[in-house]
Nucleic acid binder design. Structure first.
Lengths: 212, 212
DNA sequence: TAAAAAATTATCCAATTGGATAATAATGTG
DNA sequence: CACATTATTATCCAATTGGATAATTTTTTA
């Protein structure tokens, strides 16, 4: 097992970057679940042999952890506020909340596999999922709850509802349209991933959860 | 091995075990996805041999269809308004809407596998999922859109948002807390399936989406 | 009760899977 | 250049899988 050079060097040979492998893995795991996903299937998505993937990752489970870590890291980068934004939008204000919600809606539309991956294994959570959740989600979730409490105190959010309830209500409201985009297309002939649909949804989310 | 008496119920044929098999199938499919689920695993959940399941259902795919049909049928029964209720709560009123939302929240808490099953295969929808959606979801979804349009006209829902956007926002808001209940437990130590949590969520949903 | 039908078990099989290893090619490095 | 390291391919294997079939038991029916 050797280190993977993360250089996204587009060479001729079948050298794929770490990111390519992890993205292919995310798609396969999102489509077929951990058990249904195959190492060969992941390899085929980027024209690799399954031996190559086992060369980079010891086993399927370790590949899954790497992919999920990558997923959360990417989300964190996408959603985080810069120090300047932190100054312009102080915590607990409705302006910051609105900005965050718009950003989150765009994230959900860009990476719909996120919601799918998480939902797949939370059923009767395996030790694998439990570990990934604790490692990646526990701390950010708890700080999010803190922010929700602040918004409840400043009157932006309803004070009498459990923060967990508010949190999952809002995230579900943001995610669902995009995570189920193919269903929406089939049943309602509505293209949820179009630019306009995304903007409309962001507007709806903000006007629903951040009333003036 | 215990034999399942298929004749306990007055209906002829394998009616008695039908529900057991389908429920076991739903759980297995929800936990592991279509590819990851195994006929032997489904059989083991109710102490059957995998041969028995193949005796009742030609193949894995047909079993999946039967299970999903069962799922939608059960949902329809759970959510439908009786003729008396139709009189008491006319379509397009906020009272009917609120009643429906409460009922839907309770359905989501009772059958969290519903959301999971649907999310699993909508990724790049297989012909299988496409067929199931068209057969079970297309028509009810379109009548739901009609109801949403009425609620937009009567001013209960925002008039400037696409009905599809409203619909998936609300269903996501209702489902998410329960579909991800194990995640909520791990990350926030909140038991989303407790009676009080369910009631709190229903209250929050109604007060959020049916403002006075 | 005896024959027919239905239910159930017990095997069998080819295909696929994750994992392992050895052989080989490419790349760097002195 | 030689040569060690790294990347890549090609096989191999045991386990599991969906599916098939034959054998056996139970239930229905005539």
């Amino acid at each position: 097992m050797s280190m993977i050079d993360l250089k996204t060097k587009p060479t001729k040979g079948p050298a794929r970057s770490r990111e390519d492998i992890l993205q292919a893995a995310l798609e396969e795991f999102a489509e077929r679940g951990f058990d249904g996903a195959t190492v060969r299937g992941i390899a085929a998505r980027i024209d690799l042999t399954h031996g190559m993937i086992r060369y980079h990752y010891d086993n399927k489970e370790q590949l899954w952890f790497a992919a999920v870590d990558h997923l959360f890291e990417r989300q964190f980068e996408y959603l985080k506020f810069t120090p300047e934004e932190d100054l312009e939008f102080p915590r607990g204000t409705r302006e910051r909340f609105a900005k965050f919600l718009r950003r989150y809606v765009h994230y959900c539309a860009k990476y719909p596999e996120h919601a799918r991956i998480l939902m797949q294994e939370t059923v009767s959570p395996t030790p694998r999922m439990r570990k990934a959740l604790k490692q990646n989600l526990r701390e950010p979730h708890q700080t999010t709850v803190e922010e929700i409490r602040m918004l409840q105190e400043t009157g932006v959010l309803k004070a009498d509802a459990p923060p967990a309830s508010i949190m999952y209500m809002i995230s579900g409201a943001c995610q669902n349209l995009f995570a189920l985009a193919p269903e929406v297309k089939v049943t309602l002939d509505y293209n949820a991933l179009s630019r306009k649909a995304i903007e409309d949804h962001a507007d709806l989310i903000v006007s629903t959860f951040v009333p003036d």
